[in-house]
């Protein structure tokens, strides 16, 4: 499924770029991520604990940054696998300066697999959108 949107972060483009490239910020901001460990250049292993209402689960996953064009754009790929299936999200982030603020425009694909696709699609899509919102909110306050 397609995921796209835009979010304004109250910080200059360069700062937002640095935050996006800082694993400690990513670890704090990516919803559910408990730990982020380097796994090669611009690649991290992630352990994720997720909880929305009664739904909860543990996943292991990865975060990968690529096609970096500082401080304008990059591709972000995240994946998580666990007992109920897998979620992968891949998309492009564009940082557009808006005065002292930065608008982050994202567009990409979210793919669910296994039980998550079969049963949870309605919920997981909404949860994913919420996670993206949370990510940018957290990024703003980092």
């Amino acid at each position: 499924m397609k995921i796209e949107g835009r979010h304004t972060v109250p910080a200059p483009q360069e700062t937002v770029w640095q935050r996006l490239n800082d694993p400690s910020v990513l670890e704090r901001s990516l919803p559910g991520v408990e730990r982020l460990e380097p796994d090669g250049p611009d690649r991290y292993r992630a352990s994720i604990k997720y909880k929305v209402g009664a739904v909860s689960g543990s996943f292991s996953g990865s975060v990968e940054l690529s096609e970096k064009n500082p401080p304008h754009s990059m591709r972000l790929k995240t994946s998580a696998r666990g007992v109920p299936g897998f979620v992968t999200g891949e998309g492009k982030l564009e940082l557009v300066p808006k005065g002292a603020e930065t608008e982050v425009v994202y567009s990409g694909e979210l793919q669910l697999g296994g039980l998550l696709a079969a049963i949870g699609s309605r919920m997981v899509e909404s949860a994913a959108k919420k996670s993206i919102e949370d990510f940018f909110k957290s990024l703003a306050s980092s």
Binding site: Q111, L115, A117, I119
Partner: peptide, 14 residues
């Protein structure tokens, strides 16, 4: 099935 071959109607709930 979605375009990745995931069965979206995976239960009697759907």
């Amino acid at each position: 099935y979605d375009d990745q071959g995931q069965l979206l109607t995976g239960e009697l709930m759907d």
